[in-house]
Structure formats: C-alpha cells, structure tokens
Design a protein around this nucleic acid. Structure first.
Lengths: 230, 230
DNA sequence: TCAAAAGTGTTCGTTTTACACCCATGT
DNA sequence: ACATGGGTGTAAAACGAACACTTTTGA
C-alpha cells in the first residue's frame, strides 16, 4: 500500500517501538488487570502487561487493537493512550520505546480459552507493583486517567455487562475510587446524567427482592458538556 | 554508558521516532504558538511544530527538552506529553512515529536570537490549522489538555513572568478559555487557592492607579487534592 | 476634572453532602 | 417471621453565578 519513494530522514536512528496494553476488568467487586507470564528473555516468566512490537504495516492504534484482540477475542473496545515511555534503560533487554494504552472490557464477554494460550490471568489491580520493568508506573498512570475520566464521562460502563443493576454500578465505582459511596447520592447522580435507562427486567441473583436492570444508552456521549470550570 | 549485550528482539522492525513540541506563550492577551518554517523536505517551508528525531543516547523526555531548549534557550520548563501519533502515513516523507509534548513558557524570558536562527516565530494559536501534517490535531489535543488542567492546577503561571497582576492573570485565563470572566469571581477563586502571594510592589504600566503584583508560591502543588468528584 | 483601570461583597440558585427507614421476597 | 439486599427524600452546607459602585491617579 504505502511505499516511501525516497528516504528523507535516512541519517536518523531507528528504534524498536512496542505497545503495551493495560487491560482492565471488573470481577468480584474488584478492578482486575490482565497480565501474563512473559515468554521471552529478558525477565522470562515475569509478570508483564500484554504487549507487542509495532509492525510496519499498522498504525500505533492498530497495533494496540491487535494486541488486545489477540488476548481477549474482543473487538470495538474502549481504548485510549496512557502515554509513551521512552527511558533508555526501561527495558533491560534492548532499547524499546513503549506506547501504552488502557482498555476497559467486560470480563464475561472475553474468550477464556485465549488466557491459557497466552499464559495470562486476571490479578487484582493492587498487585500491579509486581510487574516487570516500568509496567507498575504505567498502570498507576492508567488508573489515574481512569479515575479522572470516569467521574466526568460514562466510560465505566465498558467494564460491565450490557445489563447491570445500580448496585453493580455502585460497586464498580467504589472499586475504581477505592472508597465507599452513599447509595442515595450515587443513584441520584447516575440517574441525573441520562446515560442509563431502566429495563423492564429484574435481577434476582443478588437479592430476594430483585433489582432492576439498567443499560447504558449508546450515543449520549455527544451530550457531554465541555465545561472546564471557567 | 548503556550497551545491549545481546539483541533480544532483533527480528523486529525499527521505526524513526521524533518528538514534536507545542510551545505555548502568552503575548498581547493571546495564546501564541511557536512555529517554524520547516527546513527539510518534504513540505519544506511549511509551518511546522518544532521537532527533532530522538537520539540513541537520550530518553524521550530528554529529546523533548533538547528541542525546547535549543529553540528558546530556556531550561526547567513545564512540559508534559500530549500523546503519540503513529499513523502510517502521517508524515508523507517516511514513516515517523511522533511523540508530542507541550510546554508553557514565559515569552519574555526566551532568547530571541534563536528565533531567527531557526526561522521561528510566534503565531496566534488559532492559526494552528495552517500547520503541516497532523500538527493541527496535535495542537488541538494540547489545548484541550491545557484547558482541563489549568482549571484544576496552577500551571497557567508558567505562561507569565514571575511577577504579574491579577489583571494579567485574568487576561491569561480568558485567552486560555476563549471567553471573558467575571472579575470579582475570578479574583475570589484565584485567591482562594493559596497558590499566589501578593507582593509589596505595584505595576503602574497598566493603569494610573497601579495594580499590585503577585507571584506564584512555589511548591504548593502538593496541596492539590486528589478529589475526582466521587 | 475626567478618563481608565483597580479593587471590593452580597444575594440567589444550584449542587453536594449527610443521614435512616420501609419494601419485597425467599427461605 | 425474619434476614437480605433494594429502593427512596429531606435538610443543611458549600459552591458558583450574577451583578455595580468606589478608589486612585496621571494627563
């Protein structure tokens, strides 16, 4: 498709460029991180984010999507850049510049068979300091972005199944922010944005009385106001 | 200093990696962007952000600092990543992955002689759509970050001289947000954070009565609360 | 004396917080 | 009948928005 006719910049140094994906899920009322045991040296066997080298025929975003999809089987997933990590010695093997993305997925929708294939598993987010290299910092940065963003925009829904109860939703937010929230205020606030819609269906799994399911109204994101506080 | 003993990843493709700097200043009550006329093909002569290729012996951050310092003569400047742009065809010359930073500087402190040397000049931020390649998008993304961040954290001060009046400060915020603000509310709010300190010195340049100078209190940034709204 | 910018408080509406009880149901 | 989680309202406080006049001084 694309072929550079001329090498304009051929006196310059090239670098290996990788993408690393911070794949987050919500399970057992905890934010979980999808990690794997690294299959190559150096640090073979160490806990690592899922990553891969960028290929010649793909954009950075496409590389991130490829990594995510190969590990989860999911497509059309919420994913955003966290940042790019470029310290010289960040990877002890060789210099690699890593562009990091975070993704929010519904763990129940993923293809579980792929976990085995890649030696991957879900761990509690607070175990991210066990990761190799600068991956712990990457995760901290991602969580920070998530906390800031989830308070303003309805991205948390990406971590839940299509149908969820307000109790589920509250548990999610409590996990994201690491603190318990007032039930009445939380519900008032969530229903105040009109991002979610009550369904005529009740979840009896969590209680005898049963709780109404809600779903996220697609395409209300354009209603977001761009009010910065000034 | 560092030498990779082994090439662990040598079956992988390397890429050219550049940093591009969005250097912002405040002048004549406008947010200005430091741009230059590109000196190499392709798009030679086009309006471009200041950038440079990352070198083997420097981190990404160091590369950004090098670019900024070479063009302004300034060190210890507020600078943050905006994001990394990695579409295959984003640079029509050859594939280049660009890691973008934005910097906030006091235009009065810069070394003006360097502007000539690099064929650089300050243009109003709203002219950024005249830039080459994907640079206009980079600038939009940076402005968005700035607007979000300046409402929460005292980073705007980096665009002002050490001493400034509240009138200057308000003009700066009005330029950042592109709308006029109420003087009393603005002052109440700014003095409410205790980031700034009144000096015993008056600026008579802007009015007959004179306005008190203020300065930014260093190291109050740790007082920032991490309240996400939940 | 007047023009021009600096400086200063109050009111009102909205938003956020804190807080406790009844409901519906399965066992 | 009781244990369990689901669901609801109100009062007080904090915050944000709107709004107009007096002060100082150089020309």
């Amino acid at each position: 498709m694309m072929s550079a006719e001329v090498n304009y910049y051929n006196s310059q140094n090239p670098f290996l460029v990788a993408v690393d994906c911070i794949i987050l899920g919500f399970q057992d009322n905890e934010i979980k991180l999808l990690v794997h045991h690294r299959q190559m040296e150096p640090a073979k066997g160490g806990l690592s984010l899922m990553g891969g080298f960028v290929r010649e025929n793909e954009s950075l975003n496409d590389a991130a999507i490829r990594v995510l999809t190969s590990l989860t089987g999911l497509e059309n997933i919420f994913m955003e850049q966290v940042g790019t990590y470029g310290d010289i010695d960040r990877d002890p093997g060789e210099r690699v510049i890593s562009c990091v993305y975070y993704a929010l997925i519904d763990v129940r929708a993923q293809d579980e068979s792929l976990l085995e294939k890649y030696n991957a598993s879900w761990v509690n987010i607070n175990r991210s300091d066990e990761l190799i290299f600068d991956h712990p910092q990457m995760v901290r940065d991602a969580i920070n972005i998530l906390r800031n963003k989830a308070a303003m925009q309805p991205i948390g829904f990406n971590l839940l199944p299509e149908k969820f109860t307000l109790t589920h939703l509250q548990a999610l937010y409590e996990a994201i922010y690491g603190k318990s929230l007032d039930k009445r205020n939380f519900r008032k606030r969530m229903l105040g944005f009109d991002f979610i819609e009550k369904l005529n269906e009740v979840d009896k799994s969590g209680s005898k009385k049963g709780a109404y399911y809600y779903k996220f109204k697609e395409d209300k994101t354009h209603l977001l106001n761009s009010d910065y506080g000034f």
